[in-house]
């Protein structure tokens, strides 16, 4: 492998990692505050992707403006769906055992995924990339799609935004406090249920954003939710449940790993995320960035 190819593959892998991070960080954040593993996160991501497709057909989305509208409209729409789900369903099971929580979110997967089938049918869809992002840029004499570069820019922006929100704002302080000391938070006069609802909405917003970005990256079909949630799981477990920084690290490891291992290992490269996930769980169950459970 030449060093040019190495750099090219690294950049390409980081793009994949960034997209994964956007989706997985939502899952991790929700777990951190709500202590619920939301299987339906993948379904919300899928709904975001399909909504983006439908809206793009109305907007004739080849223009940059059309694509920006998708980016601005779809994620909040998913956040609103999240709001409804949190208030009507999730809230009722926070005190229940893990199994019932998992089953509740799994039931949502069944309902949401099948609703997508009923509404959009089984055809694969995609969103046309805006003209500005449809071409490619030269990296070390090789062509890299401009759209990947775009994701590579968006990803760190989101990461920075989340860092800023969590560490530099009052809301962030409350959210972090909710992660570390869920029991004492109420005593401090914070409206805990509001914190939970807004965190859940933020998680869904990220899922929606990931959906929009995916719809223009590749084809979308009925299976993407189930597939993505497992990838996100791997990311979140490797990085540490509830840790956004860990999700970033986990995403980048998996994104670059999948790109690099493809060449020497072929199809076996796809085993890597799960092998790493199991390994981390065995050696360090709380993940690379997480803290042991009290």
């Amino acid at each position: 492998m030449t060093w040019q190819l190495f750099v090219f593959m690294l950049i390409n892998g980081l793009c994949q990692g960034m997209l994964l991070f956007i989706i997985a960080s939502g899952l991790s954040l929700v777990f951190g505050v709500l202590r619920v593993i939301n299987f339906a996160h993948g379904s919300l991501y899928m709904i975001g992707a399909f909504l983006a497709y439908s809206l793009s057909t109305l907007l004739s989305g080849e223009s940059l403006l059309g694509f920006l509208i998708l980016l601005l409209v779809i994620p909040p729409a998913i956040a609103i769906i999240g709001f409804v789900l949190e208030v009507t369903l999730f809230r009722r099971v926070y005190r229940e055992e893990h199994l019932l929580q998992l089953l509740l979110t799994y039931a949502l997967v069944l309902i949401l995924d099948d609703s997508v089938r009923v509404i959009w049918g089984g055809d694969p869809r995609s969103v046309t990339r805006p003209d500005l992002l449809a071409g490619s840029v030269d990296v070390m004499g090789m062509a890299l799609p401009s759209y990947n570069v775009f994701i590579l820019v968006i990803g760190p922006l989101i990461a920075f935004g989340m860092w800023f929100l969590l560490y530099r704002t009052r809301t962030g302080n409350v959210i972090r406090a909710a992660v570390s000391f869920p029991d004492t938070l109420g005593a401090l006069g914070v409206n805990v249920s509001w914190v939970m609802t807004s965190t859940f909405m933020l998680g869904c917003w990220l899922a929606g954003l990931g959906g929009v970005l995916t719809a223009a990256l590749s084809n979308i079909d009925l299976g993407i939710g189930m597939e993505k949630i497992i990838e996100c799981f791997a990311v979140v477990v490797i990085g540490g449940l509830g840790s956004v920084g860990g999700a970033l690290l986990g995403s980048l490891i998996i994104g670059t790993g999948l790109t690099f291992f493809q060449l020497p290992f072929g199809r076996w490269a796809l085993v890597f995320p799960y092998a790493l996930m199991a390994l981390v769980l065995v050696i360090r169950p709380w993940g690379l960035f997480g803290k042991p459970e009290r």
Binding site: L104, Y106, A107, L108, L110, I111, D113, D114, V118
Partner: peptide, 10 residues
């Protein structure tokens, strides 16, 4: 089917 099943589980 999945919607029915999901609703039942809920």
């Amino acid at each position: 089917w999945a919607i029915v099943l999901g609703a039942a589980i809920l």
